[in-house]
Design a binder for these strands. Structure first.
Lengths: 234, 234
DNA sequence: GTGCACAATATTGTATACACTTTGGTCAAA
DNA sequence: TTTGACCAAAGTGTATACAATATTGTGCAC
């Protein structure tokens, strides 16, 4: 029973309010309701969420650590604007880490894991059917995170989670065309390969899936107007 | 001249005091002057560094994001105690990332980079000659960070920096025997390979160097007594 | 009308004050 | 002696107040 007691004590929620704010802001960024470059004023956010600036500052600092927002001293926090170089690096790093994770996931996945992945894909289909672009993007990232967690390499999984968060911003800035259908099929066959414990195929499918995503980006200068001034006149 | 103006504005230092505290604590951890598990009381640190708890909390939060300290709600912050599983994962991840970085560094290193690495090795020798274990450990990690930066993959370099920071804690907890001489030689030949642009050799040397480090660890339960209760009764 | 200096405003950085939780100890009862 | 509750002290979580900095608006000189 000792184990149960420990679990209960550890599970005693007490979610810090800064975490809730952090999650709310993350989700808004992932769903592209906050565009890159948007100013995140502390007072403004404090009023919106009904907490003090202390909490907001804590949350913004967390997001800054995850490179989702950039802070400038005495100027404030802004939704991050990954540069083309950063965008390229994010995907290069994903192409290094995720195929290995897919391989390990194929090795270690339990029937429960498979069921979870398949249920997740169902949710993705629903979001696509409803043409809910933001939710579809979010769920797509979540699938990658689930796979990395199944691989049971929590550090790499943490890195991947980090990279996927940044990928949302990159997609917001540099996405070229709609290829949702392609993605849908890629996820489906990837989960199949994991289900079949086909490590080589899972690794290959993940790699080519990421290459497809990467090549669907137009890594030119950001399109926003407020930065183009700097880009042009710099 | 626009460029120069922008540079000057951006370079206008203004290091936030929380960063200074953060750096001081990091260095103390790296040099093993703060043992894993040590309580980091906010008031105590505030008095030591002559700033308010606000600054200390900010710094501790940064360190928590880097997994150098662990915070427990309403209980405070403690120097992190990586578990054997975490330790294994840290080195497995380093073995995945760093050999690739060494290869890219061999490809991209400029003569200035080589000179910097060689100068760094000199400093390592000095620290070893003075039997300054803490400084030697710190410099050893710095060399790995320099190499990853030369590879010009800033995201991977950031991950490696993160992993090396955690490695300090792991070494503090699980180091088995002294093999400083081995390390000295490994670093030397690694820099040689990079100097000679020998990518395969740089990659192999880095890999075997990391494997050596990894195998010099005794990944059993932590030795501290205050945790053994939990470990026994869990 | 244009450009610059300066003041007013707004926003961030830091310190302090207060509320809540944990912790350690004391005392009473079994 | 041991167990339990309760109280006091210490420490963390949050809000607020004040200081420093940046931004914006105004007026003056040219």
């Amino acid at each position: 029973m000792n184990e149960a007691v420990g679990e209960a004590l550890a599970r005693r929620g007490d979610a810090p309010s800064s975490d809730l704010v952090c999650q709310a802001l993350s989700q808004a960024i992932h769903e592209q309701r906050l565009a890159p470059g948007t100013k995140l004023g502390e007072g403004e956010l404090a009023e919106i969420y009904g907490v003090s600036r202390t909490i907001i500052r804590t949350a913004l600092q967390s997001l800054a650590h995850g490179h989702l927002v950039e802070t400038q001293r005495n100027r404030g926090a802004f939704v991050a604007k990954p540069t083309p170089k950063e965008a390229r690096e994010v995907f290069e790093t994903r192409e290094l880490l995720e195929p290995r994770c897919a391989r390990m996931a194929a090795l270690k996945a339990t029937p429960e894991d498979i069921a979870m992945l398949q249920a997740h894909i169902e949710k993705e289909h629903e979001a696509l059917a409803q043409a809910d672009q933001g939710k579809a993007l979010y769920l797509s990232g979540q699938l990658h995170i689930h796979i990395s967690r199944i691989a049971d390499q929590s550090i790499i999984a943490g890195f991947i989670e980090h990279l996927i968060a940044r990928s949302s911003l990159i997609v917001a800035l540099y996405w070229k065309r709609e290829s949702a259908l392609c993605e849908k099929h890629a996820h489906h066959s990837l989960v199949e390969a994991i289900r079949d414990k086909n490590q080589d195929r899972a690794e290959d499918l993940m790699r080519s899936h990421l290459v497809d995503l990467h090549s669907a980006l137009e890594l030119r200068q950001p399109r926003e107007a407020d930065l183009s001034l700097k880009a042009i006149l710099g």
